[in-house]
Design a binder for these strands. Structure first.
Length: 871
RNA sequence: GGAGGCUUAGCUCAGUUGGUUAGAGCACUUGCCUUACAAGCAAGGGGUCACAGGUCCGAGUCCUGUAGUCUCCACCA
């Protein structure tokens, strides 16, 4: 057998990944014999650098994919990257800026050339980073949201929506980022609280010596005011309805209107209305037929409608207007005020609301079936609580602004004729106007990046072509992603899938939380507390990283990443490594490694435990409870296989008796192999590497997942060995307390119910508890030496320790044990005295309690006897 | 304003449909270089499961309320 390093060193990971790639084990093909299992990887942005969130996301998907693959599914995990329209464009503009250039200077064509160059460079990099995590995805199907086929899917979908009347173009109030110079959807705006002021100032009433005081956080928008609103039910203010006020600084006469929107008791009871620059005002303007006057341009500067303030930045204009109003003695007061300000999710600039002509998707008709799909459980959120977030959004959804004033992305397939004004929406380029024969030009804008990601589950499989892959792998099985992306992506995939494929794109949406730093803070660039997964992979190995992200984490909840955690997982991998090393180095040339047919008690015990673990872990994984599955495997591997079974096998393993040795080693190999298979989805590299040392070229990742086998369940032996473990622990405890040197053997007298079993286990007592000779007796009277006793359910072990016994200490110890036992007796008696319990609780539970009481009473008697010996 | 999560050992967290004496890792105490592993082995200490009620034979688990804390959504000028 091959030599293994004494300490686990993950340097083999790259080699293992190449082996998998060479074997094409990741590739999935249409196979009617098998049931498909499909996961679409959430495509990372090509701007990206792999972060901990990706590491968690990919690990979960890889666990599921490998698990299902081993379970005989045709498992497809399709990877890819996202062009990330706005995010990438921002990056490229930044880079241009370093060269002293703007995108306008280099022009669209050159800009796109650079964008594609960026894609080649950084898209490739993130793919390499993913591979370092061990992802078993089918790279032969790797997709990019701007691939030719995916682009044709986008056009197809756009045209279909348009023909159905679900896409329209119109002037609406939208979110505008003055920095990125593009429209944004509602989901792309993030709100943050900012300290500002509430300015109170007067709007004089025309022809009267009176004025309405209004309050606003945005004085600069007053230039675009076209009304003042008061609540008609407001006794104090209603009298103003119908009057006209003269807009200060501007001189425009605007009406006072009555509308419920103005809340009684807030501010002054009167609101200035700027339909062009506030969504609520826009709605109110529609209700009251108010004109829309745009005063802030797309560059964030005051425009020609702003009079003398034209050209000023919004904030500068605000300052000047406040000064001017004060000079006119119209300013009443200025109060400090905290309010939420919308910011661009990409560049952080304060977002402006403004009226602009854009493309929209009509959401109501699409949202309805999407809500229903979740209600009828065609798609389930895991954990379920996330569906509430989904419903909340879908039920209150507004039309989706999909046009972006950017260059990098899918260009909107709409064509305009400047001669006659005709517009054509078409999958194919249109050069000539079908109406007047004039020249057509394509819409300058591109689509929201999420428009194409919404099609990901089917565009990657060939849509709009009716491919075999599409009909076999769609709908997909599971989507794994963070809860922060429900609106952007999950919701939009669901309605797109239903609309174009007739079925929701996946049956399970598995949500995971955020990976936070050791203090529980969100990892972020600005805080500088981000941890680079690649660095962790280099220092500890991808397996340790994967395990630390999964182990013991409850579904959907955030986790912390800490040095302690990664170290303890690395230690676990090392433990597995060394246990395997031990087993492998004890394999001899002529050993037959097939599992023995005659099993001894210890074998039966470990096989029973193994089978229970197989059953539980399989159930957990099928329910996507990866954290629990990992924890169980950790525990079984370390605390049962390593701590007990390997130790118990050593005598036979080292035996000169060839058959005995062979029995031990083949059992160890069997159990180890099952463990490697079970752990493989979690820690694929190290398990594959270990397996390769003795598998004669077989590859672990394509082995079959272990199944529960009734034939290997032996409840009696299991109970016997649990009892034996208890005895061993109790003896060790006594030795420890009595300060018996670890090397010193102690003899023991045993009074046992099942003498035969203990007799068969004497070798384990020798090995594990440092026991020398064992003598079976029927009662204490047969023993003349002074002894200390270990009392368990199954047996009483009396250990002569001679002068080592510190009587005082021993009495203390026994008294403590008596107290503990009495407490159990008291509690159990009380429970059994409760007639309602006996009548209503399951019989098995009642029996258990009775048995427990009996055992405790028995034990108490023995303990008291023992105490009497000292009295 | 609306919704949801969390509160369990010193710290970080598990705890699957209510059912033995509530678990793990780290930290801590004691003893060990025992021929797989000191990234280890053995033994041990440490918890009124936030609080108050309720349902039930039985509650960390279900219900109601309170407090603290975090997040999401909406956004009232």
């Amino acid at each position: 057998m091959e030599e293994m390093d004494k300490v686990y060193n993950p340097s083999f990971e790259k080699r293992i990944y190449e082996k998998w790639m060479r074997g094409k084990y990741f590739e999935a093909h249409v196979n009617p014999e098998k049931e498909p299992f499909t996961i679409m990887m959430p495509p990372p942005n090509i701007t990206g650098q792999l972060h901990m969130g990706h590491a968690l996301d990919e690990t979960m998907q890889d666990i599921l994919t490998r698990f299902k693959r081993m379970n005989g599914y045709e498992a497809l995990w399709l990877p890819g990257t996202d062009h990330a329209s706005i995010a990438t464009e921002v990056k490229i503009i930044e880079k241009l800026k370093e060269e002293g250039l703007t995108k306008e200077e280099i022009g669209r064509e050159e800009f796109l050339r650079r964008a594609w160059q960026w894609k080649e460079q950084y898209g490739g990099r993130i793919v390499e980073q993913l591979k370092g995590l061990g992802v078993s995805c089918d790279w032969s199907k790797e997709a990019f949201t701007m691939d030719e086929n995916l682009s044709s899917a986008v056009k197809e979908v756009f045209v279909k929506y348009y023909k159905k009347g679900l896409i329209y173009r119109g002037s609406r109030i939208i979110n505008w980022c003055p920095e990125c110079k593009t429209a944004l959807s509602d989901a792309e705006v993030e709100y943050e609280e900012q300290q500002s002021n509430l300015w109170y100032y007067k709007y004089p009433i025309k022809g009267e010596d009176d004025a309405i005081v209004i309050a606003t956080t945005r004085p600069e928008t007053m230039l675009g005011d076209t009304a003042v609103a008061v609540n008609p039910k407001d006794e104090k203010m209603a009298k103003y309805i119908g009057k006209t006020v003269v807009l200060p600084l501007v001189g425009r006469e605007i009406p006072v209107v009555g509308d419920d929107y103005c809340e009684i008791g807030f501010g002054t009871g009167a609101v200035k209305i700027t339909p062009a620059h506030d969504p609520n005002d826009f709605e109110l303007g529609l209700r009251h037929n108010l004109p829309i006057i745009i005063v802030i341009g797309e560059d964030g500067l005051m425009n020609e409608n702003a009079g003398k303030y034209q050209g000023l930045d919004r904030l500068a204009a605000r300052k000047r207007i406040v000064e001017d109003l004060t000079a006119l003695d119209l300013m009443v007061k200025i109060e400090p005020y905290a309010h939420n300000v919308g910011t661009c999710y990409r560049c952080g600039e304060t977002v402006e609301s403004l009226v602009s002509k854009q493309w929209f998707v009509k959401m109501k008709p699409l949202a309805e079936p999407a809500i229903k799909a979740v209600q009828t459980k065609k798609t389930e959120f895991i954990p379920q609580r996330f569906e509430k977030i989904y419903y909340n959004w879908m039920e209150n959804i507004k039309d989706w602004c999909i046009s972006r004033q950017l260059w990098w992305g899918h260009r909107i397939p709409a064509y305009y004729c400047d001669d006659c004004g005709e517009m054509v929406v078409s999958k194919n380029d249109v050069d000539v106007c079908p109406k007047c024969g004039g020249k057509m030009r394509q819409d300058e804008d591109v689509l929201d990046t999420w428009f194409s990601s919404a099609l990901w589950p089917f565009s990657t499989l060939g849509y709009p072509k009716k491919t075999k892959n599409l009909s076999y792998f769609y709908p997909t099985t599971a989507l794994v992603t963070g809860y922060d992306i429900i609106f952007f992506w999950v919701a939009r995939m669901i309605f797109s899938g239903i609309e174009f494929m007739g079925e929701p794109p996946f049956s399970d949406v598995i949500m995971h939380g955020l990976v936070r730093d050791a203090q529980g803070r969100k990892m972020s660039k600005s805080l500088g507390n981000g941890i680079d997964p690649l660095e962790i992979v280099n220092n500890y190995g991808a397996d340790a990283l994967r395990f630390s992200l999964i182990n013991g984490v409850a579904p959907g909840s955030d986790t912390r990443f800490s040095k302690e955690k990664i170290e303890s997982c690395r230690n676990f991998v090392n433990k597995l490594w060394n246990a395997s090393r031990f087993v492998i180095m004890n394999i001899k040339e002529d050993d037959d490694l097939t599992m023995p047919t005659r099993l001894n008690g210890a074998d039966k015990w470990i096989l029973t435990r193994l089978n229970d673990v197989i059953k539980e872990v399989t159930v957990n994984l099928n329910k996507y409870e990866m954290g629990m599955a990992a924890a169980k495997l950790y525990d079984f591997t370390w605390s049962e296989f390593c701590d007990w079974y390997i130790e118990m096998s050593k005598n036979a393993l080292y035996s000169d008796n060839k058959a005995q040795h062979n029995h031990a080693v083949s059992m160890l190999v069997y159990v180890l192999t099952e463990i490697l298979k079970l752990l493989h989805p979690f820690i694929p590299f190290v398990t594959e590497e270990i397996y390769s040392k003795y598998s004669n070229g077989r590859v672990l990742m394509v082995e079959e997942w272990p199944t529960f086998n009734k034939k290997f369940v032996f409840r009696k032996e299991e109970a016997n060995f649990e009892g034996l473990k208890e005895i061993v622990v109790a003896i060790r405890n006594i030795r420890n307390e009595m300060n018996v040197a670890p090397s010193k053997r102690v003899n023991a007298y045993v009074i046992a119910k099942d003498e035969k079993f203990i007799a068969s286990a004497v070798t384990y007592l020798n090995k594990l508890a440092g026991v020398g000779d064992v003598k079976f007796v029927k009662s204490k009277e047969e023993i003349s030496e002074r002894t200390t006793a270990v009392v368990t359910h199954d047996a009483e072990i009396l250990i002569p320790l001679g002068e080592l016994i510190d009587e005082k200490k021993e009495i203390e110890r026994i008294n403590a044990e008596i107290a503990e036992t009495e407490a159990i007796i008291k509690k159990t008696q009380a429970l059994l005295a409760n007639t309602a319990f006996v009548a209503k609780a399951p019989q098995k539970l009642v029996d258990n309690e009775r048995e427990k009481l009996e055992k405790a009473q028995d034990k108490l008697e023995k303990l008291k006897d023992k105490l009497n010996m000292f009295a």
